[in-house]
Design a protein around this nucleic acid. Structure first.
Lengths: 182, 182
DNA sequence: CGAAATATGTCAACATGGCTGACATAAATA
DNA sequence: TATTTATGTCAGCCATGTTGACATATTTCG
């Protein structure tokens, strides 16, 4: 343990022991700031790689979700990213033009453009996911065995109540889609 | 087993039980995606308020750190935010011009511009922190009593190893600065 | 003291990635 | 057939990041 423990205090400033009361007491400074720092570093690893490809974070997000959810509809991707179709269109066009993503007509509904990564696209997506996994694995490795589950539960609880179900379904569905063996 | 997963199953797809092995096996999809979703929603609450003031996320970050670390030097703020002085200068100027932040000459070193929030600035900063605290408190409230500590440890571990110490010192220092009573 | 380093500010130009609004096309559906 | 839906696209704007060059005070060092 030693000096891990941000403030040096074993139980936070006032919230830890009163976590059940949601009144607007003192801000939960430590988690507010830690979320900022953790996320800042979390996205920084891929950024360096992406720069070499002439891509940015927007491309990363698209690549990630297309790779992870093969055959995703444009509309669903928009919903996940919560951006406009114009913003998506810009980066998606580049990814398609440069051969990282392909589009396929929907079988039932031929208006739909289902999105898939190409082998080249998958390679990049997996590379980026690998970087982020390294960081997460290192972090989890420093903590106890329950850390993965604890982190997952915390992050899920942080998501908007209404979007939470669809996010969980999305992730669950992807697990089935990407790993048919088991 | 059902297909809602995330918060449900005690041992995930493959990572939960092998969390201690840091080899680059299968990406840790769930945490990668959950970090994205959680952070996306985490910053969305303040965004709405900021929009009414004509401010954006960049202003929020500056307001936050100046409020939380009164008298912070410009150089230190740059270091924390990891942006260029030109980017900072733009938003900082607006915040100063509109009376949310003030600058004071350093006592020892008169080249320094130490940054403070005005009462008006503090009000806004606390409002924003309150929104984020609501979300965090709600999340922690849904989880067990150890959740705050677990989240803190996970987030700290996610930070770059080299920056981690300075972040922890920063947070610890701020706790002392902002709450001299105790 | 004078030179060099430091802390900050500023101008100009550019890139990325959000946004709105308007409009076009093809396919599904009522 | 008329309408709705899924998608694409053009045009322009805004926020916020970048680099590079340069200016000004002030401190520090030789």
């Amino acid at each position: 343990m030693a000096d891990i423990n941000i403030g040096g205090l074993p139980d936070g400033p006032a919230q830890s022991t009163t976590a059940s009361k949601p009144q607007s007491h003192e801000p939960i400074w430590d988690l507010i700031e830690l979320l900022f720092f953790a996320y800042r570093d979390f996205v920084s690893d891929p950024d360096d790689v992406l720069a070499k490809f002439g891509f940015g974070r927007a491309h990363h997000r698209v690549m990630h979700f297309v790779n992870r959810h093969p055959g995703i509809k444009v509309a669903d991707l928009l919903d996940v990213l919560k951006i406009t179709k114009q913003s998506l269109g810009r980066v998606l066009k580049q990814l398609v033009d440069e051969g990282y993503v392909t589009q396929k007509e929907g079988e039932n509904d031929r208006r739909q453009r289902l999105l898939y990564v190409t082998p080249k696209g998958e390679q990049l997506a997996m590379k980026l996911a690998g970087l982020q996994t390294e960081r997460i694995a290192r972090a989890l490795g420093e903590l106890g065995p329950g850390a993965h589950e604890a982190a997952r539960r915390f992050l899920v609880a942080m998501i908007d109540a209404d979007g939470r179900d669809s996010v969980q379904r999305l992730i669950a569905r992807a697990d089935r889609a990407r790993r048919p063996r088991t």
